[in-house]
């Protein structure tokens, strides 16, 4: 059974849910089954936020991701919470600007990316999430860039169309980092 179970986690406001939605849309455009399940409640208002995304060739049973194949972590509490749960052979991508430590695990692939600093240096404030997505795409090969760019066009509402290019720029930046 070919399924990729992903956990994206960080603070509310970092665009965690949006990044997850982008991956889910890309999965849909690639004709896969997908599910997206957010944490909800008080954590949306300033606390930690996370979402579970599954991309699968098969029908998706439980939408929960207790043991992710992929972890994208954008803050320390999320990293500490989910890093031990990642499946052996899995992938961890984390924002090393915000997480001052790394994984000691030897059974997973670990990618550090200075996403928040890079975003700020390149005038892409608030787009560390997309830099993370770019890095993840390069490391995993789950989708090609073109599919993700098409998904982006579906996810960005017409009222924010001006941000489309910046999002693409951030994804490319992460992809080539």
């Amino acid at each position: 059974m070919s399924a990729t179970r992903m956990m994206l986690a960080g603070f509310g406001g970092q665009g965690i849910l949006f990044a997850g939605k982008l991956l889910a849309y890309a999965g849909m455009l690639a004709n896969k089954n997908v599910s997206w399940l957010p944490s909800y409640g008080p954590e949306m208002r300033g606390g930690t936020a996370n979402c579970a995304v599954i991309v699968s060739d098969e029908e998706i049973g439980s939408p929960l991701v207790p043991a992710p194949d992929v972890l994208l972590a954008l803050n320390l509490p999320s990293f500490e919470k989910f890093e031990p749960a990642v499946e052996a052979g899995g992938l961890i991508v984390f924002d090393s600007s915000l997480i001052p430590q790394t994984s000691q695990r030897t059974d997973v692939t670990v990618c550090a990316v200075n996403a928040t600093s890079m975003a700020s240096d390149e005038g892409l404030n608030g787009l560390a999430n997309m830099i993370m997505i770019g890095k993840f795409l390069r490391a995993s090969g789950l989708f090609d860039l073109d599919t993700v760019f098409r998904a982006l066009e579906k996810c960005v509402p017409p009222s924010k169309a001006a941000l489309l290019e910046k999002n693409k720029q951030a994804i490319s930046l992460g992809y080539n980092a």
């Binding site: 939605k21 089954n33 997908v34 599910s35 997206w36 399940l37 939408p63």
Partner: peptide, 10 residues
Amino acid sequence: DGALGQMMEP
């Protein structure tokens, strides 16, 4: 239930 209300699927 809360999960079905909150989750996205195609």
